[in-house]
Computed example of a mutant assay.
Amino acid sequence: MPFTGPTEDRLAIRELLDAYADAVVRNDAAAWGECWAKDAYWSMPDYPEFGTPTGRENIVATWVEAMKHYPGVIFVSNPGSIEVDGDTAKVTAYTSEVYNDAGGNVKRDRGTYEDTCIREDGRWVFQRRIFRNIHRG
């Protein structure tokens, strides 16, 4: 079953996905960083140049550098599944991005995140995010 667990937790996780996407579009590192657990892990195997940062501070620093390559990005994310089990949740999210590359060409990327979310300090955050490209055009 792709959506399990208490409705209020699933809604809070959906709002986490939305807050993350909003921070990307606004290029707001502080708001984006608030989406991550203190000891989080972020992996983007299709982008080895960004490494695999751990810890919120390192993840945000990596993101700030990465965003220099995606000016004016539009980023949306939709959940494919949210499975809550107590203070942990497994989430699959699909992303769609539109941006101009360095040459001014319009790029359209689709991808998927496999996530582990946790309740930290009373709110849901990303503990582990692994991103993979699905389609690039």
Rank of each mutant, 00 (worst) to 15 (best):
G137F: 01
F50T: 04
D101W: 00
I118R: 12
T95L: 03
S81D: 01
R132V: 00
A21D: 10
H135I: 04
Q127E: 14
W36N: 06
Y94G: 08
L11R: 07
Y47N: 04
H69F: 12
G33A: 07
F126M: 10
R129D: 07
V24A: 11
A21F: 02
N105D: 10
V125A: 05
E83W: 08
A89G: 07
C35F: 10
A12I: 10
R123T: 11
A12C: 11
A93P: 07
W63K: 04
A21R: 05
T52P: 12
P45I: 07
Y47S: 07
W42G: 01
H135K: 10
R110P: 09
M67P: 00
A23M: 12
V76A: 02
V24F: 06
S77H: 02
V60W: 03
R10A: 04
R119F: 03
D115G: 08
I59G: 03
R10M: 11
I74N: 14
E15M: 07
Y113S: 08
N27D: 14
I118H: 14
Y70I: 08
Y70C: 05
F126L: 13
R128Y: 14
G72Y: 02
I130D: 04
E120T: 02
A40Q: 06
E49R: 15
P53S: 05
D85G: 09
N78C: 08
S77V: 12
A93W: 00
I59M: 08
M67R: 13
R128E: 15
D46L: 06
Y70H: 14
A66W: 15
Y94N: 09
A66F: 15
R14K: 09
I118P: 14
S81W: 06
V73A: 15
T88H: 13
D39I: 00
V98K: 14
W63P: 02
F3I: 03
F50Y: 14
H135M: 11
S77W: 04
T62L: 08
I13H: 04
V106E: 14
Q127T: 06
A66E: 11
Y94F: 15
W36V: 00
G104H: 02
K107P: 02
A66S: 14
E15V: 08
I118M: 09
A66M: 13
H69K: 12
R123D: 06
A23S: 15
I130V: 14
W42V: 06
I13T: 06
A23L: 09
R128N: 11
W42T: 04
R14L: 13
R56D: 01
A12G: 05
Y47L: 11
V64E: 12
F126I: 01
T54I: 07
R26W: 00
A40H: 08
P45Y: 03
D109N: 15
G111S: 12
V84M: 08
A31R: 13
A12M: 12
A29K: 01
V25H: 01
G103P: 05
E83I: 04
I59Y: 08
G137E: 01
V98N: 04
P71D: 07
E83F: 02
H135N: 05
W42M: 12
C117G: 00
S81P: 09
Y70M: 13
D28S: 04
C117D: 03
E97F: 00
Y113F: 14
M1Q: 08
V106T: 15
I82N: 03
N100E: 09
G111R: 03
A93F: 02
L16P: 11
